[in-house]
Amino acid sequence: MLTVETLRDYGANVKEGLGRCLNSEAFYLKMVRLGLSDENFEKLRTSVEKKDAVAAFEAAHALKGSIGNLALTPIFNPVCELVELLRGKKEMVDTGTLVETILSEREKLCKLDA
């Protein structure tokens, strides 16, 4: 069950995320669920697999905005790193474990909500 407490334990900056939602817990949790279902996670995975640097950048950039607004720090930080790695690149570069981290952190949260 996803709650403010579980998010705090997970490592989210709940104070900041809630603040953006005018301290409405219900709305914040609704937005977090919406953020976790963002199709850009899937787009990121497939574009990295296909070594499409431009598409990967676009997906990561989109996630940076929304995940950042939700203050989901464990996902946000690797997303930011990935965006900077891919910025302006036409060819895929070595992104190390960043994509796996992003996807697994997202998975962790999804499981919390299960």
Partner: peptide, 13 residues
């Protein structure tokens, strides 16, 4: 804004 989270959040504010 195409990102739903950002869109909804701003709208809420």
């Amino acid at each position: 804004e195409d990102e739903l989270v950002n869109q909804q959040l701003l709208g809420f504010i």
